[in-house]
């Protein structure tokens, strides 16, 4: 039988508990949501990354609406007699509100090693540009 003795002790557990208690971080409560999301931007694009291990690209359903990007899918449960189950399973859904205009036709999604990356290009007309004021 396979035994796992790591439940009781894993390094840094209490240190992390104390650290988290004194430094509450924004979005801490949502870290429990599956799958975790990273949202970032650079000059040309917005990037949404998500850890969805075990999912094939066609099993992840991405829906882009006017105001939101919805990531949904279902993680299957393995058959067998479980001794330990930590991996989340079942249906999941995350909704990313898009309150910025994006170029909807050029949105691309890739999935590599269980990390989903959605690239949302900023639309041409929305990149800020300088307007010179002429003195009349």
């Amino acid at each position: 039988m396979v035994l796992d003795f790591n439940t009781i002790y894993y390094p840094g557990r209490f240190e992390r508990l104390i650290e988290d208690f004194f430094r509450p971080q924004p979005g801490e409560g949502r870290r429990m949501a599956f799958p975790p999301l990273n949202v970032s931007e650079d000059e040309a694009n917005y990037y949404i990354r998500s850890e969805v291990p075990g999912m094939a690209l066609d099993a992840v359903e991405l829906t882009l609406t006017e105001k939101s990007l919805v990531i949904r899918g279902e993680r299957p449960t393995e058959q067998g007699k479980y001794y330990r189950q930590e991996r989340p399973a079942g249906f999941f859904q995350r909704v990313v509100a898009l309150n910025v205009p994006v170029d909807r036709d050029k949105v691309r999604a890739t999935l590599a090693d269980g990390v989903l990356t959605v690239v949302l290009p900023k639309c041409e007309g929305c990149i800020p540009r300088k307007i010179s004021i002429d003195v009349a």
């Binding site: 894993y10 291990p53 393995e78 479980y82 001794y83 330990r84 991996r87 090693d113």
Partner: peptide, 21 residues
């Protein structure tokens, strides 16, 4: 510490680990 499933089937034990990225 990656999320891990340990289960037993007819032909032995299986360990699944989530290692995204």
């Amino acid at each position: 510490s990656p999320a891990t499933d340990i289960l037993e089937r007819e032909d032995g034990f299986y360990v699944f680990m989530d290692l995204p990225g």
